[in-house]
């Protein structure tokens, strides 16, 4: 037993390093073989494409480490976008709308958290339910229409880059939030509690951790960040639509698992997740540049999701023989 258990540990440790290495290789190969991949202009597009997945993957990592899941993130993003469009149509100032959309995201997350922690329902079922519910509400709010003409100061900032450099403005948001979530997970008592809850909720309780409280606030964080992703999505395309971000939850979960986080909870690290996001995003970007259709890109997400589970297993089996 001890031998297999330590193999499991090193398997995760190694997978984290492996995924970072694979990501670097994919970036190099893509830059060498796809003509426009390595350009600074494409770098901007790549970061913008990565933006929603990267942001939502951060709280998702913590949620999955506790052994739960949040599948409602893309619908929260869509509802945030729809409400943003609705309020903008109602001539509200953008400075009021943005905080309201963030608050809305937090409330939607709190609803998930309430069902999972207070009522003790399984998060998979709850968030599949709110996935449908929040997306439905988005269509109730905005219907099939699209709202455009958001203030160019904001849309330009989201699509723009820092000074004369090719570094996109939104990269600042990603980096800052990645550091915040990375520090919370790996260097605070909250992070210790997150891992403890994922490893054994009962034993965590016996050590004074309040699993319900930890999970509740993670769902609020997940909703809040999804709301933010909805705002940024809307500003990037200057278009608020009820179907914005549909299906994004799949890519987010794929990136997190690809990053070496255990779907059973208790194990994972944020650097691996960042690598998973970059790998997924850059593969999609490179394929798009090579004229692969958007629909076919889903194949990539699916294959990567399976690879994320298969990869560590194969590595483990090879090491054993």
């Amino acid at each position: 037993m001890s031998a297999t258990e330590s193999a499991v540990v090193s398997r995760f440790a190694n997978w984290n390093a492996a995924i970072i290495a694979i990501t670097v290789i994919v970036l190099i190969v893509a830059a060498a073989s796809v003509d426009s991949f390595g350009t600074s202009q494409n770098f901007g597009f790549l970061v913008l494409d990565l933006l929603p997945i990267a942001l939502v993957a951060l709280p998702m990592t913590l949620v999955i480490v506790t052994g739960e899941i949040d599948l409602s993130v893309a619908s929260t993003l869509g509802l945030s976008s729809a409400v943003m469009g609705y309020l903008w149509n109602a001539n509200q100032p953008i400075e009021t709308i943005i905080p309201l959309c963030l608050l809305l995201g937090a409330v939607l997350g709190a609803v998930n958290g309430f069902f999972v922690t207070v009522l003790g329902l399984p998060s998979l079922a709850v968030t599949i339910g709110t996935l449908a519910l929040y997306r439905g509400l988005a269509f109730v709010v905005l219907g099939d229409s699209a709202v455009a003409d958001f203030p160019t100061v904001y849309t330009d900032w989201v699509t723009g880059s820092i000074g004369g450099t090719p570094i996109p403005n939104v990269l600042i948001i990603i980096v800052v939030l990645a550091i915040v979530f990375g520090v919370i997970l790996h260097a605070t008592p909250i992070g210790r509690a997150v891992f403890a809850v994922g490893a054994s909720e009962q034993a965590a309780r016996f050590a004074g951790v309040r699993p319900g409280r930890v999970k509740f606030w993670l769902y609020v964080a997940s909703g809040l960040i999804s709301g933010l992703a909805g705002v940024l999505w809307t500003l990037r395309y200057s278009s608020a639509r009820a179907d914005n971000g549909a299906g994004l939850e799949l890519a987010v979960v794929a990136a997190v698992l690809l990053g070496g986080v255990s779907i059973f909870g208790g194990k994972g690290a944020l650097p691996g997740v960042i690598a998973g996001v970059v790998l997924l995003g850059s593969l999609q970007n490179a394929l798009r540049l090579s004229d692969v259709s958007n629909e076919a890109l889903n194949v990539v997400t699916g294959v990567l999701l399976i690879a994320s589970v298969l990869g560590p297993n194969l590595v483990n089996r090879l090491r054993r023989t």
Binding site: E5, A196, A199, S200, Q202, A203, F206, G266
Partner: peptide
Amino acid sequence: RQQGLLMELSIER
């Protein structure tokens, strides 16, 4: 095993 320890975490944690 169920209450006292987090079996999959390190001794240190």
